[in-house]
């Protein structure tokens, strides 16, 4: 490639690289620097080395938030993946009703978290919620979804799954459309049953899509925030407080900016390690016999 051509290419990517560096890379390193300080939101700074990190790793509330976060991710990611795959399989056809249902299931994704939470509050609230009314109508006690420590995390998970159906379903639909029709015909001539076709043809063909969905969802759900804050405010007694809510409370409730950023950096490393780990695990087997 000639020097001018390379220069031309550089000119094209420069705006993005500049914006990316200014808005993401620079703040990341500034954050790292601030996390080594006792700092508040008004600019007071005092260098304290790794003290924020040692404090963090000794904080039981941080560990509680971490385990809540992982529990949420475990409840949400596999369920969301399976449900959206099934939805995509059911709606991957050119009929009018399939198009309507695709639109319906995608529509929840365009709502803001506030509206989603309002809808699910209306469904789940024990005093006047939809489920509570149905239960009292048949003479049963309302279930305290939003205040019982064992029920708040599942309630947040269900809300999140409902909200998040759209994008993974669309990814799976796109993946399904990319499978050439003639290999299904070849399978029909190979006496492949419906189940065999699904497990030996469709699922392996969706491998990359599935990896993408799991990675995106893992990264997203480890940073779950809005639903938890608006549904339960992390309660009761912190039982439904995910890490980002913990960070938010420290930064904007207790004004401990350095400490909050230290927690955010730890979360960032975790999310990065987990998603890269998933990618490595799944691409490692790529060329093995299926």
């Amino acid at each position: 490639m000639s020097r001018t051509a390379r220069f031309g290419g550089a000119v094209f990517v420069l705006p993005f690289v500049a914006a990316y560096s200014f808005l993401l890379i620079l703040p990341f390193f500034m954050g790292l620097w601030i996390s080594l300080h006792r700092a508040d939101l008004f600019g007071a700074r005092q260098f304290i080395g790794l003290e924020n990190y040692t404090r963090l790793f000794a904080d039981p509330v941080f560990y509680q938030a971490m385990s809540t976060t992982f529990l949420l991710a475990l409840l949400i990611v596999p369920a969301l993946t399976v449900i959206t795959l099934l939805l995509a399989l059911a709606l991957n056809r050119a009929t009018r009703s399939a198009a309507i249902f695709r639109g319906l299931f995608f529509s929840s994704s365009v709502l803001s978290v506030t509206i989603v939470t309002l809808i699910w509050r209306f469904v789940l609230t024990p005093d006047a919620g939809l489920i509570a009314k149905m239960l009292t109508a048949v003479g049963m006690e309302p279930i305290p979804f939003l205040s019982h420590p064992d029920l708040t995390v599942p309630a947040i998970a269900i809300t999140t799954i409902w909200w998040g159906l759209g994008l993974p379903m669309m990814l799976f639909l796109a993946g399904l459309q990319q499978i050439p029709q003639d290999i299904y015909e070849a399978a029909a001539l190979d006496r492949s049953s419906r189940w065999t076709t699904f497990f030996r043809i469709t699922l392996p063909s969706l491998r990359r899509t599935t990896i993408l969905v799991v990675m995106l969802q893992t990264a997203a759900q480890l940073q779950i925030f809005g639903q938890a804050q608006l549904l339960t405010s992390g309660g009761p007694s912190g039982s439904s407080r995910p890490v980002v809510l913990y960070i938010y409370e420290i930064a904007f409730g207790r004004w401990e900016l350095g400490y909050a950023i230290a927690a955010a950096e730890v979360l960032f490393v975790l999310v990065l390690a987990l998603t890269l780990g998933q990618y490595w695990l799944s691409s490692r087997n790529e060329d093995r016999p299926a």
Binding site: P180, D182, I183, E185, A186, A187, R200, I201, P204, S205, R207, P289, A290
Partner: peptide, 10 residues
């Protein structure tokens, strides 16, 4: 098949 239709993952 014209495009062979081999199973790509096998």
């Amino acid at each position: 098949f014209q495009q062979y239709a081999l199973y790509p993952h096998m």
